[in-house]
Nucleic acid binder design. Structure first.
Lengths: 109, 109
DNA sequence: TTAATACATTGCAATAATACGATTAATATA
DNA sequence: TATATTAATCGTATTATTGCAATGTATTAA
């Protein structure tokens, strides 16, 4: 109780839900948007820009990284983050298929 | 502390994160998939099919309904659920724009 | 070497989410 | 009316998430 019963779902369902969960926070969406706009990378500008404590930003970055959505490399003193192309494209494909499987309203409910 | 600081994010970021959160659970993905496949509606078959308790399924349905992803109408003794076309299409558009804003790897990290 | 900078980690407190048994509410049928 | 059926709700235990101050770690600059 209180623990998601992953074992009764398919790998695909578990995987997709984890990717969604990684994105399901306004701060993490903001971080991703910032990375997407800058195209190249970013660092700790997020702390100033988002208005959250440094520890909190670092935690969100870690979650995005753990989910495989972003990757980061040390760049001197700072750390550079950017989108992980592989995971991103996979998610784009998987989510696209899921969302587009809805074929309009067929007179229901 | 322990409470998401929604006030520092944009309405769009908050809205998108809430839709994602509503989908970010394998059971709710399974429920949505089931509705998408059946196209028409469903009822409490989910309890048998998913292997979760009736109370749990009902709770997940409520979350999906609160998020606006599905809608339900009473059909005699049972309740019929189906996709909410308006929210679904809005999310499809908003998420699509978000995901496709990534323009391939530009030599980074 | 020392100090400063940039992040990551840890530890803690508050809140949210997950799951389910038990109960309730509403409708349909005998 | 009495009973079965279906689903929502309540109560509760357990686990996860969010946020931040404090601390740790590694790299750069003086």
């Amino acid at each position: 109780m209180g623990l998601t019963r992953s074992e009764i779902f398919t790998d695909e369902q578990n995987q997709l839900s984890q990717l969604l969960k990684a994105m399901a926070h306004p701060a993490r969406i903001a971080i991703l948007q910032r990375i997407l706009i800058s195209n190249t990378c970013i660092c700790g500008d997020l702390v100033e820009e988002l208005g959250l404590a440094q520890a909190t930003i670092s935690q969100h970055l870690k979650e995005l990284k753990t989910a495989g959505l972003i990757q980061g490399t040390i760049e001197g003193v700072s750390v550079c983050y950017c989108i992980n192309p592989v995971t991103w494209k996979m998610m784009e494909k998987q989510l696209g298929a899921f969302l587009s499987s809805y074929k309009g309203e067929v007179k229901c409910c």
